[in-house]
């Protein structure tokens, strides 16, 4: 099985790219691949804890928790996240916080790299 590094840049709202990225990551993990997700840009808004998953509203927490339970590694760009007013102690437990070199290190060891979304 391979190693996948997935860079996720889109926000929760505006298009389905964020949703696709998480579904894609889950499908890859279910197939037995090692999957690492790097959250950057507007995607970092989704790492805040205590999201209320109301019907018809785009949220990320329960999906991210499910991915981590399955063994997907998730890290958020600290600069992008704090720039959006989210502190580390407000983040979802288990999600790593780091700088961009975290993603490059995963790129180094990855068999395939996917870059998804953005504005």
């Amino acid at each position: 099985m391979g190693k996948l590094a997935i860079g996720v840049f889109p926000g929760l709202v505006g298009n389905m790219a964020y949703d696709f990225a998480l579904k894609f990551a889950e499908a890859a993990k279910d197939k037995g691949h090692d999957v690492s997700i790097w959250m950057s840009g507007n995607a970092t808004v989704s790492v805040k804890a205590n999201q209320k998953h109301l019907l018809d509203y785009s949220t990320g927490e329960k999906h991210l928790l499910r991915l981590m339970e399955k063994g997907v590694e998730i890290c958020t760009c600290e600069a992008c996240t704090v720039a959006r007013g989210i502190r580390k102690d407000e983040g979802i437990e288990g999600i790593q916080w780091s700088a961009m070199h975290w993603f490059l290190a995963r790129v180094h060891s990855a068999d395939r790299v996917f870059l998804i979304g953005g504005e």
């Binding site: 840049f9 950057s40 840009g41 992008c80 961009m100 070199h101 490059l104 979304g117 953005g118």
Partner: peptide, 13 residues
């Protein structure tokens, strides 16, 4: 365009 700027900073890292 945030991602195009992020491309530069990711490369610098």
């Amino acid at each position: 365009g945030e991602t195009s700027r992020l491309a530069i900073t990711h490369a610098i890292s």
